[in-house]
């Protein structure tokens, strides 16, 4: 089953673009899976991949992430965040000769804009998925999450000690989920329903907010917070 963060695959550039959508969807946690070794043939892709994309697009329409009108109409619903372009990042070379081949090169497949493969695992540092959000939610394109009172240690630079202004703020982006503390539910319980993703075991933007607005609730939350339901998914009170 294909999937995984920063999926890299040896694929032919002529591969079916729908496969790329599938990889994207898997990355977003819509489906689970392991690492990609080789591309699946078009026949082996999940039959409902196109339907899932359509569902995502439908949920996006009318939300604050719907840039269709300002970008210029139909076909642009995804392109504000997803850059549909493949780039050969490490051309294969002939053994000994260093000559470029025409055969499969290593390509990056539909990585989300801003996604990085490396980040400091031991720090309160936003992970790759959150960097996508922060690329706009820095006060310029959208509400800032850096200097606002809403959240976050995302406002703290890499390697920076916790500053006084931020210590009362909660839900630091990029913090490892404290699964081993008794006031929190086990990570497996939190993620069991598939609504609350914890990428690499960390609390990221998408742990609480769904950029595709599938639940349709206020603040683009991953689920309704009626009677603190979302809060209590993690916190034991």
């Amino acid at each position: 089953m294909p999937g995984g963060v920063a999926a890299e695959a040896f694929i032919d550039e002529r591969s079916d673009m729908r496969l790329l959508f599938t990889v994207l969807l898997l990355f977003l946690g819509i489906s689970s899976g392991g690492a990609v070794d080789r591309p699946a043939s078009p026949e082996s892709r999940p039959d409902d991949a196109g339907g899932r994309v359509a569902d995502l697009r439908r949920s996006l329409v009318g939300s604050k992430h719907d840039f269709t009108d300002v970008l210029g109409g139909a076909g642009t619903a995804c392109s504000a965040c997803h850059v549909p372009h493949m780039m050969a990042v490490r051309p294969a070379s002939q053994p000994g000769g260093g000559v470029l081949t025409t055969q499969p090169a290593t390509v990056e497949v539909y990585r989300i804009a801003g996604q990085r493969r490396v980040f400091a695992v031991d720090r309160y540092t936003p992970g790759p998925t959150s960097l996508v959000c922060l690329g706009c939610h820095d006060g310029t394109v959208a509400t800032s999450t850096m200097g606002s009172g809403h959240a976050l240690l995302a406002g703290v630079r890499e390697g920076f000690a916790v500053p006084d202004e931020f210590v009362w703020r909660d839900h630091p982006v990029g913090v490892p989920y404290p699964s081993n503390r008794r006031e929190y539910r086990a990570e497996s319980m939190v993620t069991a329903e598939g609504k609350i993703p914890l990428p690499d075991g960390r609390v990221e933007c998408i742990s609480c907010h769904d950029p595709h607005n599938r639940s349709g609730v206020d603040k683009m939350l991953v689920m309704s917070n009626r009677r603190s339901a979302l809060c209590l998914s993690c916190h034991i009170k």
Binding site: D138, G139, T140, M146, G147, G155, V156, R157, G159, F160, A161, V162, P163, D164
Partner: peptide
């Protein structure tokens, strides 16, 4: 004294834009 130096020895910008 309160917060110590940042991990690389400086009080630097927090989110410079």
């Amino acid at each position: 004294w309160l917060y110590g130096p940042s991990s690389f020895g400086k009080t630097a910008m927090r989110n410079p834009q």
